[in-house]
């Protein structure tokens, strides 16, 4: 008899564990990057708060030769990546995959896209504009931007993307093909290999999770 109670107990525990892991739809994405504890005084008491890694403010030139700032992305979730128009290696795969996500969310003001060109010499706004049109981007939801070398490569660091000029790499730039999912507060909530279909599927799921959390 005792044995039966024991088994029932184990089963109960297991059930509780499984349903606990299920998460009942209130999934929360992590905030990526470094974090620092900051002590501040609230009502005379010392409180420790966490400051999370954040994309710094930026101003960059887009495909319409308009200087856009990070404020453009204040009220939306956005997906960022780094590429260049003459890239023969991973960029076509990345942009092919991102185009699918763009087409899904076209017209949805909650989602934006931001592609940074690493080729600050060749990829002028006019070149970026022609590229965007040929890719099939028809509205300003997807921004293609260029800036000085310091601006773009500094931002790549903030997005935790490896990027380097390298004459040995195909096209002259060596970089990683990550898509970064950024929330309204400019926190990175996910990083996905843009050349991998399965990872892009993950991005789709996380994007939905983030949008639901914003509702």
């Amino acid at each position: 008899m005792q044995k039966i109670h024991f088994i029932a107990g184990i089963c109960g525990l297991l059930m509780a564990f499984i349903s606990g892991c299920g998460g009942s739809g209130t999934e929360k994405l992590p905030i990526l990057g470094s974090r620092e504890p900051v002590e501040k005084e609230v009502d005379g008491k010392i409180v420790t708060d966490t400051v999370y890694h954040q994309i710094p403010d930026f101003q960059l030139l887009n495909q319409d030769s308009v200087r856009i700032s990070s404020q453009l992305f204040d009220n939306s979730v956005y997906i960022a990546d780094f590429f260049f128009t003459s890239c023969p290696s991973i960029c076509p795969i990345m942009q092919r995959n991102l185009l699918e996500v763009y087409n899904e969310y076209k017209g949805d003001p909650r989602v934006k896209f931001l592609s940074h060109s690493l080729d600050f010499k060749h990829d002028s706004p006019a070149v970026l504009r022609a590229y965007a049109q040929k890719l099939g981007v028809t509205n300003d939801q997807w921004q293609f931007v260029t800036g000085t070398k310091a601006e773009i490569y500094g931002l790549a660091d903030s997005y935790m993307v490896y990027a380097k000029e390298d004459s040995n790499a195909p096209g002259g730039f060596d970089h990683s093909g990550y898509f970064l999912l950024v929330d309204k507060d400019k926190h990175i909530r996910g990083a996905y290999d843009g050349t991998d279909k399965a990872q892009v599927e993950l991005l789709r799921g996380d994007l939905e999770t983030l949008l639901k959390a914003n509702e």
Binding site: P88, P92, L99, K134, L135
Partner: peptide, 15 residues
């Protein structure tokens, strides 16, 4: 394949 695609479908008006 990077540009012309796994099914030879190309990409927009780029490739």
């Amino acid at each position: 394949q990077n540009c012309h695609g796994a099914k030879g479908e190309g990409l927009g008006a780029l490739y």
